[in-house]
Design a protein around this nucleic acid. Structure first.
Length: 360
DNA sequence: TATCCACCGGAATTTATGGAAG
DNA sequence: CTTCCATAAATTCCGGTGGATA
């Protein structure tokens, strides 16, 4: 049923961005000076997850590159320090200079000044918690580098930056993206369905239904259609039913969770496995079980068990990734639960209490 | 009601790491 | 090889919180 899965890939960037005309021209205007060899203006792009913030940036950068070979870089900045972000940018730049972890941060602005002799657009993706002010401080006095910051919440982002930079990201230099309407999601899905699926397996009306199911989050809509097609094919059907759409959305979410869990390090895997085995579990039980199980779970592993405080941050990460949840209501004693009991860690983690007499 | 207790999470501090330069 | 630099990750410290207990 799927004839070309590239059209459903994250990396796919369409030739058109439906219903983003205003945003496209706004961002184009701000970056236009770069076409003429001038420093572009800074821009802030905000909006909820999955509504095309990064796609918008990539779209404009592709255009600028095609029109005037404008250099640019998209740096995933989640959790990085200002120095790390600027170093990534330097290494992405075509000039032969490279910097490494130990390069003094204070030298980075000079390197930028000396080697970035043409306009350069630096996109800070996932810039929510970035120490933005530090980045901007580094770029002050660098004549050619401009910033496109991508974040979720504009008020929060602006509050975090130093006041003297606020005006650079205000008014026409702030692009706000909203969730799509179901019809708009359908417009986004249509070309992908046309190129990526067999003909006539899904109706326009169903694409609108998808837009509704995913509440205007286009990225999830794309994956929902792909998964719905998979489900339909597994059931040897020629067309996609509305039931497949619902299943498809759940499968898409499952896949996202699974992918998240796979990327996490061993400590998280141990905690996830424990919560899953004991779900629901109060924190004191969880921690004492961890202590009891740790010798076995960490035997022949390159890492050692971690302290309770560290476990709390790991659990917070698991929550962020939608793998574990707890209600804040139980105040002191939280009840941890896995979101999807079906989903197991790929690692084989022994959760039995170690016999002290056993020897390795 | 007063006191206690375990947990929570922010912040400071320590530890481990990697690459480069001397 | 040793020293330096920046950084990530982990630990330690500790005030805040709110339920439990006398």
């Amino acid at each position: 049923m799927i004839t070309d899965d590239r059209y459903f890939a994250e990396a796919h960037l369409p030739r058109e961005l439906p219903h983003r005309d205003a945003a496209v021209s706004q961002l184009s205007r701000a970056l236009a000076p770069a076409v003429n060899g001038q420093r572009a203006d800074d821009v802030l792009v905000t909006g909820p997850s999955g509504v095309g913030k990064t796609a918008l940036a990539r779209f404009i950068l592709r255009k600028l590159d095609e029109e005037a070979a404008v250099r640019s870089a998209i740096v995933r900045s989640l959790g990085k320090t200002a120095g790390a972000v600027v170093r990534d940018a330097i290494n992405e730049h075509p000039s032969p200079v490279t910097v490494h972890r130990g390069t003094p941060t204070a030298e980075l602005p000079d390197i930028l000044r000396d080697h970035f002799t043409d306009p350069f657009v630096l996109v800070l993706d996932e810039a929510d918690d970035l120490p933005q002010t530090d980045v901007l401080d580094m770029l002050v006095g660098v004549p050619n580098v401009s910033i496109v910051a991508i974040a979720h919440n504009p008020a929060e982002w602006l509050a975090d930056i130093d006041q003297r930079y606020r005006s650079q990201f205000d008014g026409s230099h702030h692009v706000e993206l909203e969730k799509y309407t179901p019809e708009e999601v359908a417009d986004i899905l249509e070309p992908r369905v046309r190129h990526g699926l067999e003909a006539n397996v899904i109706t326009r009306k169903q694409l609108v239904t998808v837009g509704d199911l995913v509440a205007g989050v286009a990225r999830l809509g794309v994956q929902t259609v792909r998964c719905a097609a998979e489900v339909a094919a597994e059931q040897r059907r020629d067309t996609i039913t509305d039931g497949h759409l619902v299943d498809g959305k759940h499968r898409a979410l499952d896949e996202i969770r699974e992918a998240h869990l796979r990327t996490l390090p061993y400590h998280h895997q141990v905690l996830y496995a424990l919560v899953r085995a004991m779900s629901p579990v109060k924190s004191d039980q969880l921690h004492s079980r961890y202590d009891a199980v740790a010798p076995g779970a960490y035997r022949n592993r390159p890492v050692e068990p971690v302290s309770r405080r560290t476990r709390r941050t790991k659990l917070e990460k698991l929550r962020e990734y939608g793998l574990v949840e707890w209600s804040e209501r139980t105040a002191n004693q939280r009840q941890y639960e896995v979101v999807d009991p079906q989903l197991a860690s790929e690692h084989d983690i022994p959760l039995t209490v170690d016999d002290v007499g056993t020897h390795a």
